[in-house]
């Protein structure tokens, strides 16, 4: 069965490594914080100026001065720090943040990503996404395999305005874990009960399929 958003987040959380600083984008990526594996210590960076971000506050304890990059009220954990936006993006550009997880509208087989603009329809701006994808060592895209019209978002080439070029290394969808290598998607894992055929049929880009494609494993 295809994963739900929480399942995608839980699978991405398995990629976390001890000691990493991690930036989570808005949407599914935010949910990754709920599934940090046992024994793994990571710290979350929010590009509006927070390291050591914690969960949402208890009711009545919201602070208008303490929000995340999605403008949601949050808390901080012991050892947190605050800083200005230039310092925040110095952390990102300077590759002090080890992992970026973000959503996308399209990803192409050479690692291009589009997630900020639909010409004539939606122009909200790129926020910090262009800085993040241009600099992060590890970028994982969390998204659904197809758009609402049923068209594949895993493409040979992006059709929408790009956010970054050749930067995505891994994509986790409700159906599969894909790696991007040598200008092709590589099928690494499939969601429990999802067939390789279904993944192939919903992937427009070139997909390398090994003889055995293991199912994702959840504890």
């Amino acid at each position: 069965m295809a994963l739900d958003k929480n399942g995608i987040a839980q699978r991405i959380a398995q990629e976390l490594k001890n000691g990493w600083y991690v930036n989570l984008g808005i949407g599914i990526p935010t949910l990754v914080a709920n599934y940090i594996p046992k024994g793994i210590e990571v710290e979350f960076q929010s590009e509006n100026g927070i390291l050591g971000m914690g969960p949402f506050p208890f009711e009545g304890e919201e602070d208008a001065d303490l929000i995340n990059a999605g403008k949601q009220t949050i808390t901080v954990l012991d050892g947190a720090s605050f800083f200005d936006s230039a310092t925040s993006f110095a952390m990102i550009r300077g590759q002090h943040v080890q992992l970026t997880v973000l959503g996308a509208m399209e990803v192409s087989q050479n690692g291009d990503i589009a997630n900020w603009k639909i010409p004539g329809k939606m122009v909200k701006g790129m926020g910090g996404a262009m800085d993040l994808v241009a600099s992060a060592e590890n970028i994982i895209v969390a998204m659904m395999h197809s758009n609402k019209a049923g068209e594949s978002k895993i493409l040979k080439e992006c059709t929408l305005p790009l956010t970054g070029v050749g930067c995505v290394k891994k994509v986790v969808t409700e159906l599969a874990v894909l790696e991007i290598k040598d200008g092709k998607f590589h099928l690494i894992e499939r969601a429990p009960g999802v067939s390789v055929e279904e993944i192939i049929s919903k992937t427009e880009g070139d997909l390398v399929v090994p003889d055995i494609v293991p199912e994702m494993h959840f504890d």
Partner: peptide, 27 residues
Amino acid sequence: PQGSLAERCRAGGAGIPAFFTPAGYGT
């Protein structure tokens, strides 16, 4: 891009007329 916006303001105040950044390349 947000980081470029922050740095462009910082540069303006710091007497740095311009700088190179990877953000936005190819877009």
